[in-house]
Amino acid sequence: MALSISSVLLLGIVVVVLFRGKSVKPGPAIACVLFGFSLASTSMAPSINRFMTSMADMIGQIRF
């Protein structure tokens, strides 16, 4: 069975779980989000996107 889920949705769920578990305080989380938005507008964005895509492809090829 193949399951397709957006990495943004998956990471959003992880953030919500960390917030609810009191593992991450709101201040550092906001700083990380702002860093992510800033990073997305740099010249590194295509490289990061290719890396994330290749990692998702690699995970998708794992057979249980």
Results as ranks from 00 to 15, higher is better:
53 T>D: 14
20 R>H: 10
35 F>Y: 13
7 S>C: 09
56 A>F: 05
12 G>N: 03
17 V>Y: 05
48 I>F: 09
21 G>R: 15
8 V>H: 07
18 L>Y: 04
62 I>F: 15
1 M>P: 08
20 R>K: 11
29 A>C: 02
19 F>D: 03
48 I>H: 10
27 G>R: 15
9 L>T: 14
42 T>M: 00
38 S>T: 08
9 L>I: 13
43 S>Y: 04
17 V>K: 07
34 L>A: 07
4 S>N: 10
11 L>V: 11
56 A>D: 15
15 V>C: 04
9 L>M: 06
54 S>D: 14
59 I>P: 00
10 L>V: 08
60 G>E: 09
54 S>F: 03
60 G>F: 15
22 K>Y: 00
28 P>Q: 03
14 V>R: 11
16 V>P: 05
39 L>H: 02
37 F>G: 14
9 L>C: 07
11 L>P: 03
42 T>N: 03
6 S>V: 00
2 A>I: 10
19 F>V: 10
23 S>V: 14
36 G>M: 02
10 L>T: 12
37 F>T: 04
33 V>Y: 09
26 P>F: 01
35 F>M: 11
7 S>I: 14
19 F>I: 10
35 F>N: 00
24 V>M: 08
51 F>C: 03
10 L>S: 07
18 L>R: 05
63 R>Q: 14
11 L>C: 13
23 S>A: 12
35 F>R: 04
9 L>E: 08
20 R>P: 02
15 V>G: 04
47 S>Q: 10
22 K>R: 14
